[in-house]
Nucleic acid binder design. Structure first.
Lengths: 144, 144
DNA sequence: GATAGGGCTTCCCATCATGGGAAGGTCAAG
DNA sequence: CTTGACCTTCCCATGATGGGAAGCCCTATC
C-alpha cells in the first residue's frame, strides 16, 4: 500500500502520516526500491487509532501514550483511564472558560441595539471607562 | 512611560506590545533619544481594550475590527454586534464539539474498570475492531 | 570613575498540528 | 515518448505567545 492508499484507508492525510513518522509517533515504514513508503493493514489500524484519538481531542503526546498502552498487553486499564480522566478535566476547564465568555458576550450583545446608532455597550465594556483615543490604530492600512 | 510601565499598567506583556506594533494592531509608539518606546495614557487604554477583547476570546483580527469601530464615531452598533454575534456562534460551535468529546469520553471512562487488569473499553473504542500490532510505535525512545 | 544590575533594543527560535507548494524522481497508460 | 498522477524531500505559513541571546543605556553604589 502506498502512502496515498494508506491515507485513503485511514482518513489521515499523507502529509500527516509523514509528519507522524518524523516526530516518532509511528515507526518509519518500509520502503520500496523507488523509495516509496509501503504500509500494511496494521499500519492503517494504527493510523485509524491515532485519528480517532485526535477526534476525541487527545494531543499527539497523549495519543502516543495511549498507543503505547494499546500495544502493551500488561497494561493496567487504570493507566488508560487516568489519561482519559485528565483529558476530560482539561476539556471541561476549557469549556467552562468559553461558556464564561459566551455568557458575558450574550449579555452585552443583548444590551446592544444593533442598529444604526453608534452607542454600543459592547465597546463600552471593552473600553472600560476610557474614551477612544484620537488615532491609535494605523488608519491607512494599505494591505493589498 | 516605558514599555515596562505600559505593560504593568495594561496587563499586556512587553513582548506582546512589541508584537502588536509589529503586526500593525497598534501604531508604532514614539521613541526617546535612546530609542526606547514611550507610551501615554491613551496607549494604555488601547492595550487594555485589546486585553479585554482577547480575554473574551476575540482573535487579534476581530480585535482589530473592534478597535477600529471603537475609534469610529460614525460606527453603527450593528457592526459591533455582528462581530460579537459571529464570535458567540464560533464559541458555541467549539463548545459543542468539546462537549461531544466529553460525553463520549465520560461514557468510555465510566465503562473502564480503571484497575490492574488490561481490559479497557477506551482502548477498544480507539482501536475500532482491530488488534494491536506487534510493534507500531518506536519502542526505544532515547529522548534524553 | 568604575562597576553592577536592571531595563531597553533587535533578532532568532519554539510551541501545536496542519496545510501549501516547489523541485524533482517514478511509474503506468496512451 | 509524452502526459498525468503519484511519490520524495525541503521550506514556509498559520496564531498568539514565550524564551533567550547579544548588545546598548541609565542609575546607584563603591
Amino acid at each position: 500500500m502506498n502512502i496515498g492508499e494508506a491515507s485513503q484507508a485511514s482518513g489521515v492525510s499523507a502529509k500527516m502520516i509523514r509528519y507522524y513518522e518524523q516526530i516518532g509517533l509511528i515507526r518509519p515504514s518500509a520502503r520500496t526500491g523507488n523509495n516509496y513508503r509501503v504500509y500494511g493493514e496494521d499500519d492503517v489500524h494504527v493510523l485509524r487509532f491515532i485519528k480517532r484519538a485526535r477526534s476525541l481531542g487527545f494531543s499527539l503526546e497523549e495519543t502516543e501514550r495511549l498507543l503505547a498502552l494499546w500495544q502493551d498487553r500488561e497494561r493496567e486499564s487504570a493507566a488508560v483511564k487516568a489519561v482519559a480522566v485528565e483529558h476530560i478535566a482539561d476539556l471541561e476547564r476549557r469549556i467552562a472558560d468559553m461558556q464564561g465568555m459566551v455568557k458575558t458576550l450574550k449579555h452585552l450583545a443583548h444590551c446592544c441595539g444593533g442598529d444604526g446608532r453608534p452607542d454600543c455597550p459592547i465597546l463600552e465594556d471593552l473600553a472600560g471607562h476610557a474614551e477612544p483615543p484620537k488615532a491609535s490604530t494605523p488608519s491607512s492600512k494599505n494591505h493589498s
